[in-house]
Structure formats: structure tokens, C-alpha cells
Write a protein that binds this DNA or RNA. Structure first.
Length: 159
DNA sequence: GTTGAGCGTT
């Protein structure tokens, strides 16, 4: 009558990180309404603790929210509580799901590349197109930022 | 104004 070796909780594998995410200050909120904004999330998640930041993922095709966002807490303890509290709660008529984000890095580092208007032309039309050396470009789609093969994967060394 | 499974851009 010998029974031993009954350890069933020795799974440290992160194979399915989406099923077993480890605690982190980054929370992923899914199932959001397409009309929920960062401000709404912030005021909802800030009740569990101070937020370090909120990021709603937008779609490039439509330019609207993708239906999920990421919430950054300053403390993991607050993140844990917020995760259990906000998980399954109703927001904007939609049931949201909160979990620790698997991916913690945004996709907009690309240093050296400014993803914004070259300059606020305002719209007043200053007609001052003449610029010494400054070539006016109305769209970034133009040739100029075509070489991105350098950004294979940002080496986020968190030290 | 749509749906809805899910992990990253404006």
C-alpha cells in the first residue's frame, strides 16, 4: 500500500501562456465594446488601484477600437485584484474579460521614425511650400519609410 | 452604431 509521487501541480510550463498567464502589471481587457474608450477603462480600473497607463488597441483598417485593450497597473497586487474584480463584469453592455497580458510591449517603438504629421500645416494654407531642403510630403506612404526589415523584434531588455 | 474571439495601433 504505497502511494506517493502525487504532485500534480508541478507544471511550470508556459506553453499556453494564454491559459495560465503569470501575474503582471499589464492586464489585457477583451470583449470590450467598440465604443469603450480608454477613459472609460481608466475610470473603471482605477478604482482597484493606481493605473500606470491604459492602451486601447485600435484597428488599422477601420481606425476604430478592436474590442480589446491593455491596462497597466503600478502594482501587481492591484492588477491581481483588478483582474479578478473586473473579469466578467459588464461594461457598456458587454461582458468583458480581464487577464494578464501575454504580450507586454506595444508595437510603436520604432525610434527614428516619427509616425505623425510632418508638421501642422494647420489648414490655413500658408502656401509656404518653399523650404530650404525641406521636401513636403503629404503622405508617408510615399517612398521614404520602406525599410523596416531592421525592426525584426525589439530587444526589450528589461535589465 | 451591428456580429465577437481574442493579446498590441492611432
Amino acid at each position: 500500500s504505497s502511494h506517493s509521487h502525487d504532485s500534480k501541480k508541478d507544471s511550470h510550463s508556459h506553453g499556453d501562456a494564454r491559459a495560465n498567464p503569470d501575474p503582471n502589471t499589464c492586464l489585457g481587457v477583451f470583449g470590450l465594446s467598440l465604443y469603450t474608450t480608454e477613459r472609460d477603462l481608466r475610470e473603471v480600473f482605477s478604482r482597484y488601484g493606481p493605473l500606470a497607463g491604459v492602451n486601447v488597441v485600435y484597428d488599422q483598417r477601420t481606425g476604430r477600437s478592436r474590442g480589446f485593450a491593455f491596462v497597466y497597473y503600478e502594482r501587481i497586487d492591484d492588477a491581481k485584484e483588478a483582474m479578478e474584480r473586473a473579469n466578467g463584469m459588464e461594461l457598456d453592455g458587454r461582458r468583458i474579460r480581464v487577464d494578464y497580458s501575454i504580450t507586454k510591449r506595444p508595437h510603436t517603438p520604432t525610434p527614428g521614425i516619427y509616425m505623425g504629421r510632418p508638421t501642422h500645416n494647420g489648414g490655413g494654407g500658408s502656401s509656404s511650400s518653399s523650404g530650404g531642403g525641406g521636401r513636403r510630403r503629404d503622405s508617408y506612404n510615399d517612398r521614404g519609410y520602406d525599410r523596416y526589415d531592421r525592426y525584426d523584434e525589439y530587444d526589450y531588455r528589461y535589465r
